[in-house]
Write a protein that binds this DNA or RNA. Structure first.
Lengths: 107, 107
DNA sequence: AATTCATATTCCTTGACAAGAATATACCTG
DNA sequence: CAGGTATATTCTTGTCAAGGAATATGAATT
């Protein structure tokens, strides 16, 4: 994955929110969807966008697709994704996202 | 400057090439233009884009505008711009840019 | 004041991509 | 196989931004 592609992945608020959740580990689409309180199609498309470009990996288990960050995609992946949570604290409501993630369930 | 804006600035190859040159210090538009061998309007617009968003600073001396990186714009500016030269070595012809910069002159 | 040089702005066309609606696929369970 | 659930794809529409051509501004020189 080249750096330009990485930056394109990072240039979208919904994707930033998703990455902030995935930072802790893999999640299935339904949990992300609940945490961000956004329509399924929207999440699926952003996840697909990042997977297609190599930033995410996915595995399917039965009905569920689990996505996780591909930390090896590029050396700058880690510093940027680790920098996200502090940097966006004021602009994007991450606290709400994380809280809703805790309340979410994957049936 | 928020992180999302930073990523938008970084998501464009011409801007990446410009930042790679500015990494070493301030330059005037005509030098950048010569180094990258691109039309003046194009360079001016990309420089304006980044200045408008806080990533670059500019000072005018007589006919010339000098642009430099605003390293304090965001904590992630430095690691990303420092990571650029290695990361793009294969994709973008930075060596040529830098060589042409050496040959460039500011009248 | 007129000219010249460096830089910036405006207008237009084009392409990428985000969002929503509708639909399709994949996989399990009865 | 039928039906349900989780996820993905297609289509359309609107917005943002990149590129080029032409023009405008700002500042020095004659």
């Amino acid at each position: 994955m080249d750096l330009l592609t990485l930056y394109k992945c990072l240039s979208e608020p919904n994707r930033i929110r998703i990455l902030n959740l995935l930072k802790e580990g893999p999640l299935c689409v339904c949990q992300i969807q609940q945490a961000l309180d956004e329509p399924q199609v929207k999440m699926s498309k952003h996840l697909g966008y990042m997977k297609e470009r190599g930033l995410l990996l996915s595995t399917r288990k039965a009905n569920w697709s689990f996505y996780e960050i591909n930390w090896d995609a590029h050396p700058l992946v880690r510093p940027n994704i680790e920098g996200i949570s502090q940097s966006f604290a004021e602009n994007i409501d991450f606290t709400k996202d994380v809280k809703q993630l805790e309340d979410s369930f994957c049936p």
